[in-house]
Amino acid sequence: MSRRQLTWIISAALVASVGAAGCKKKSSGGGGGKADTITIAGSTSVQPFAEKWAEEYKGGQVDVQAGGSTAGIKAVKEGTAAIGMSSRELHEEEKAGLVTTVVARDGIAVIMHPSNPVGDLTVEQVRDIYAGKITNWKDVGGADKGITVITREEGSGTRGAFEELVMGKEAHIAASAIVQGQTGGVRTMVTGDEAAIGYISIGQLTPKVKAAKLGGVEATEANVANGTYSVKRPFLFITKGEPAGAAKAFIDYVLSAEGQELARKEGLVPAK
């Protein structure tokens, strides 16, 4: 290696390290920051709605970061975010010092390809499909085709809620299920595979996928609100201690008639 090349490499390393230092500085400013800027972080299921709220909120700048429910809870604990978003109830060991506020409710829809003739499943059938006991669509009234089971990764709020609400204590999601890391990934796979089954938040349904009726009940916000659709979960905002200051102002806005109306329009079920 020539001397000149060496110099280039070293300069590049220098530039890179300066760049890295710069980034660090920027991200550490997220939590506290100016009084009117708050950071909220967490569940990818809550994130799209939090962004809508943040857009409409007039009281200041709200910085929304996704990363997962667990990451959101951790961020609040460590003080890097003022509010954490979670799409599942907190575990016992996570609860210490944290206050949760239900900002909306959401149902989990079981989705399949629009061309799939099966439109109605029972919760038991969904459980058996995910547990690997039912592996062919013909066993639930469909075509003679193997079922492509798609699930979310361990730790995901949507998966946590699905396991709790559908699988129960005894049944486990089969190891052979395909794992996708994001709601979008599950939707894309179901859109592309006629034999696929997946689950996503009702608020994130699109016309490209078909939501199955569960026990005859359609997966709609109305049915989540009136309690007939059984697979539903709370969306939580988490704060360290009682909400105060800018965080309280934002949560108050989200819970206000205007904020809740926005949630309803986006496909969620109001908290109250």
Partner: peptide
């Protein structure tokens, strides 16, 4: 990304890197 030892190359698999990247955001 299924966690299983596949019995054919047509079966889904999860690699070490995928395991980290998929689950890191939610893990605690």
């Amino acid at each position: 990304n299924s966690v299983q030892i596949p019995d054919s190359i047509l079966k889904p698999v999860r690699t070490l890197t995928a395991n980290i990247a998929l689950e890191m955001s939610y893990a605690s």
